[in-house]
Design a protein around this nucleic acid. Structure first.
Length: 296
DNA sequence: TGGGTTCCTCACCTCTGGCC
DNA sequence: GGCCAGAGGTGAGGAACCCA
């Protein structure tokens, strides 16, 4: 585990976080919405550790998940068998092609022939169900905020270029090609910080708030500041150095000059200013479009 | 070592929606 | 209604990997 991510965590705290993640894992068998689970765990972790900011919680969570997945993957070397992702029951919301995790009927590390046969049947069943859905999803469908956040988490965990793993473990609703395409737009967006741009999903960073849960009466500045926002992950100067992934932690994309030292984002320019007359689209989980509620 | 496969990057295309 | 920016999809090209 990269120590720079959890230097503020004691060994006991890390163990506590592990057990919380594991308990979520055990309680979530049969849970289909991995995306919601990611954030449910993060929310619980932050509730347990109110002195930690959201960024620290997410950092540690992602690190531990990746660590666990890697450990399981390494241990699977002596069990070279493939199972479908859906059969490896929710592993902290991260799917792994791996046996030996709970929910698997493994006897002494090996599957019996009967189990294998049963598994093959189940796999066939899953394939029949899943493939047509993928075809269906081939139709143009905007990325939801949830998907984009999971994309950022995946980017954080695997780094740039590992789209296959990001697709498999974090953005399960998108193919690696789709993730790659989204990443292309995302990085292009990150690079073009000087132009006036209207809001896009790629302006949302991992630590940004969930705008749709905000009180309509709150101002945009209050929303983007950390003071009263329970969903604010915090951003700004303290996020300066994250190797080649700093862009992942960038705040809403706007010229640096527009970000005050107090980390309050002020929006300028018609398209970037979320006003009732220029609402930026948000996507619901089912892909239907919702709009910004008025923050002014 | 060479052929086949997989995956990633890049560029381009089409569609959508906001602005004038 | 036209223009333009942004989003998602797709194909070409190349690098990396696998295997006989």
């Amino acid at each position: 585990m990269d120590p720079k991510f959890n230097g503020n965590w004691s060994a006991n705290e890390i163990e506590m976080v592990r057990s919380i993640i594991a308990s979520h894992d055990a309680n979530s068998i049969g849970t289909n919405n991995r995306n919601a689970k990611h954030y449910g765990i993060v929310d619980e972790l932050q509730a347990r550790f109110p002195r930690k900011d959201k960024r620290q919680v997410i950092d540690l969570y992602v690190d531990l998940v990746v660590e666990m997945v890697n450990a399981i993957a390494m241990s699977s070397n002596r069990l070279p068998m493939m199972v479908s992702n859906d059969l490896v029951v929710d592993n902290f919301g991260v799917m792994v092609e791996n046996p030996g995790v709970h929910g698997m009927d493994v006897s002494h590390g090996y599957l019996t022939d009967e189990m294998k046969a049963k598994r093959m049947v189940e796999e066939q069943h899953h394939m029949k169900v899943v493939v047509p859905q993928q075809d269906k999803q081939r139709a143009r469908r905007f990325w939801t905020l949830e998907e984009h956040r999971n994309f950022l988490l995946g980017l954080r965990a695997y780094g740039r270029g590992n789209w296959k793993n990001i697709s498999k473990d974090f953005v399960t609703t998108k193919t690696s090609v789709q993730v790659s395409s989204h990443a292309q737009k995302f990085f292009r967006r990150q690079e073009s910080t000087t132009k006036k741009q209207r809001y896009s999903i790629n302006d949302v960073s991992l630590y940004d708030a969930k705008p749709w849960v905000q009180d309509n009466s709150s101002s945009w500045e209050a929303f983007t500041s950390n003071a009263y926002n329970p969903y604010s992950y915090g951003f700004g100067d303290q996020l300066a150095s994250m190797d080649n992934l700093t862009q992942v932690y960038s705040p809403f994309q706007c010229p640096a000059s527009q970000v005050s030292s107090s980390q309050t984002i002020t929006w300028t320019g018609g398209q970037q200013t979320p006003s009732p007359s220029s609402a930026a689209p948000m996507m619901e989980e089912d892909g239907t479009q919702m709009e910004w509620t008025s923050y002014y």
